[in-house]
Structure formats: structure tokens, C-alpha cells
Amino acid sequence: MIIVNGKEYPYQGKSIQWILETLKLEPSMVIVEHNQRILEKNQLSTEMEKGDQLELITFLGGG
């Protein structure tokens, strides 16, 4: 099991890049936090491990 944006998903042993592609998210649109650590765009090939947490964060309008 892995956790993406607070929700549990089955562990499939894939890279973060693969998860983004599956969710149809452009890497330029999100900030990727892997186990509370921000990843650079060139680190997205990192493989997910069981129990890993991923936060896909974006900037929205706000005041």
C-alpha cells in the first residue's frame, strides 16, 4: 500500500513518474513531496516503496 494525497492505493512497485503519468499530471503543474521531502524534477524516476507517502501539491489562487 502507498498513500497519495492522503488516500491509500495498492503498492505496484512503480516510479513516481509513472504515477504522475497515470494520473495525467504534468510535472510542471505539481510540486512532488515524497515522504515529506520535496523532489526536484530530475528525481521523479524514484521508485515508490511500500508505505511511502506522496503529496502532489499545486498552487491555487488565494489571498
Binding site: 497519495v4 494525497n5 495525467k24 499530471l25 503543474m29 502532489l56 499545486t58 491555487l60 489562487g61 488565494g62
Partner: peptide, 12 residues
């Protein structure tokens, strides 16, 4: 100013 949020995975 702007805000930061968990992305909406269904409706990015």
C-alpha cells in the same frame, strides 16, 4: 499572494 493545496487528482 497565492495558496498552496493538495492537488485535485481527478480534476487537475
Amino acid at each position: 499572494t497565492m495558496a498552496l493545496r493538495r492537488g485535485d487528482l481527478k480534476n487537475p
